[in-house]
Write a protein that binds this DNA or RNA. Structure first.
Lengths: 226, 226
DNA sequence: ACAAAACTGTCATTTAAGTGTCATAGTCGA
DNA sequence: TCGACTATGACACTTAAATGACAGTTTTGT
């Protein structure tokens, strides 16, 4: 499962360079030069990270950043800002607007790639192959295995994706709608009640009968893990 | 609940500067000059983030970083590396070793603080100032949890919304009419007396029996919190 | 390619939790 | 003290979630 990346850059040469490098790293890359289009694409695909040039057509990068943060679908997507300016004031403004990192031109693709890896490691550890842990539950995304207090737990594909989704956001309450789009995909026309059923199956799988339930039901809001 | 920070820095002047700044920002700071000690402190306190100088006594910063990542207690704690060298090669090595971010000396405290905020926003949303607090009452809208002096309080959906409404406007007197439209919605045709009942239920939930009542009744005006 | 096994989504039903209203008792302030 | 306002307990009613069954799909092993 490759990480999806949205690159918003209007210099064609630089854009091509970035696309080339990130595709070579195994990312699934989408690119646009236009700010408005970037917002649409981001809302539609919810990429795993966004690279955003400060100065782009139509809207300023910082405005795009602000709007990405405001939209609920994209409010948690990490953003790396790209800029020609090196002034500290701008760097701080970028970070305060909600960018996660900031790279100053000229930069080497290797550095940008390293920063991207660092950011993804933090926001989507599973994509970086890191084992996710919540209390005595462990999920190894590479081996595709789950253990509860050391004991292996067999899960079906949907259960696994659902659990991974929860474990990437421990403690957070996720609504049925969020779970449907996050686990089944944006375009899925799944009944929301189906989430209940999968949660029940996941519970049955990961909880020892009579033991502590790691999934919390939050009435009229959704579910959360841990 | 302030975020706990471990600063590993052996230049006394710089260390003092950092401690001062981060404490002023409200962080709970521990500092050490020694790499081995840093590992012990980290394992013992599991801070919410670590600032780590590249060149420190005993072990190199990069080795400390590697070991922090290997230990299960600290493998998920975000690390910001601090370095005098500006060479790209080192920056990349730092990031690849598992640092989450990288700041080159000389840097301004403001920038470091902004980066720290960006990192915490992602790893610990609750610590990035998103939780609402009034006296010893805390409400975390993301996790959908409420605690009174550290002790979790179970609330029903309406009670939760009502409390959130109060906590977003601490100290302010809200009329029953305002509460109805704010909590139940503009188009709701709820009896105003119903507010009394929900306030009673909320009180019963958040106040220890016999303890201090955080909700004040303002006769012929409404209610206020705190 | 085929059959068995595993997995999914949906629905009807059961169970649980939460909510609004009202009648009544209690409280506060002029 | 009186009258207006608020607190409280009971209760019927809604709403939400858990569950069990089942038919249709997909996957797997042979």
């Amino acid at each position: 499962m490759a990480a999806r990346l949205l690159i918003v850059e209007d210099d064609p040469a630089l854009a091509e360079l970035l696309v080339w490098h990130f595709e070579a790293e195994g990312y699934d890359v989408t690119q646009t030069a236009d700010g408005e289009e970037a917002l649409l694409l981001a809302a539609e695909q919810t990429p795993d990270a966004i690279i955003l040039d400060w100065m782009i057509e139509n809207i300023s990068g910082i405005e795009v950043c602000r709007r990405l943060r405001r939209a609920s679908e994209t409010s948690n997507v990490p953003i790396i800002m790209l800029t020609a300016r090196g002034e500290e004031e701008d760097r701080i403004r970028g970070l305060e607007t909600g960018a996660d990192d900031y790279v100053t031109k000229p930069f080497s693709p290797r550095e940008l790639i390293a920063r991207m890896a660092a950011i993804l490691r933090r926001s989507r550890p599973a994509l970086a192959g890191k084992t996710l842990k919540v209390e005595d539950l462990e999920l190894d995304p590479i081996a595709h295995r789950v253990r509860r207090s050391g004991q292996e737990v067999p899960l079906g594909p949907t259960e696994f994706r659902l659990l991974q989704h929860f474990m990437e956001r421990p403690g957070r309450v996720l609504s049925r709608g969020q779970l449907v789009t996050g686990v089944w995909g944006h375009d899925s026309d799944i009944e929301e009640r189906t989430v209940d059923v999968q949660v029940k199956r996941l519970r049955a799988a990961i909880n020892a009968p009579g033991g502590k339930d790691l999934i919390r039901t939050v009435r009229s809001a959704g579910y959360s893990l841990g």
